[in-house]
């Protein structure tokens, strides 16, 4: 956001090292794959043409990123950054943990709850658990909010918008 831009390059040196390496690898892989694609009527209409160009271009740009990072001591910076992250995790442990919990919550909701439960139940379970852990209010309040939202969303989509909901079904 509104960060002083002068030290941005400094700040991003560490991430640049990782990004540059992995993106260059991705670019190379894409370009290599593109070469193996068929050429039914010459190279100029081949399916692999643009992927090849994009892969090469990505590799070149990532290389620039990588070189810039290494030149300015990206390696040392990266080690510092890792230390920093470790520190962050302890200092801002609460935030990191909440973010991770949020992410895991969505994963559980999408991959475990929805395929097995009715939409409104899965949603209720997800919302109630997440709010319980993050919000820490009395269970009744949470149950009311989570239940209300689950029912409202189900009705909105199945009755008003007349579309299918994800999940194993719905009884509303």
């Amino acid at each position: 956001m509104v960060t002083p831009t002068v030290d941005r390059r400094e700040r991003e040196r560490g991430p640049d090292l990782v990004a540059g390496t992995s993106l260059a690898a991705l670019g190379l892989y894409v370009a290599a794959q593109a070469v193996t694609m068929p050429r039914p009527a010459g190279w100029h209409s081949a399916p692999g043409l643009l992927p090849f160009l994009l892969g090469s271009w990505l590799t070149a740009m990532s290389a620039v990123l990588l070189v810039g990072s290494v030149k300015r001591g990206g390696g040392a910076q990266l080690r510092r950054a890792v230390r920093q992250i470790r520190q962050d995790v302890t200092v801002r442990a609460d935030r990191v943990w909440r973010m991770a919990f949020m992410l895991a919550g969505v994963a559980v909701y999408v991959y475990l709850l929805l395929p097995r439960l009715y939409f409104e139940i899965a949603t209720f379970v997800y919302l109630a658990t997440t709010m319980r852990v993050l919000w820490r209010r009395e269970p009744l309040k949470i149950a009311l909010v989570a239940g209300g939202v689950a029912v409202a969303l189900t009705l909105l989509f199945s009755r008003f918008l007349r579309t299918l909901l994800p999940g194993a079904g719905s009884w509303l």
Binding site: R116, L117, Y118, I121, F124, V125, A128, T129, R132, P139, L140, A143, A168, G169, W171
Partner: peptide
Amino acid sequence: RSWDWWGKVSRRAFLRLTAA
């Protein structure tokens, strides 16, 4: 104690699931 309500809901959900 705070997890009690949650267990109940879960059992109810299970019954519904069986019906489903």
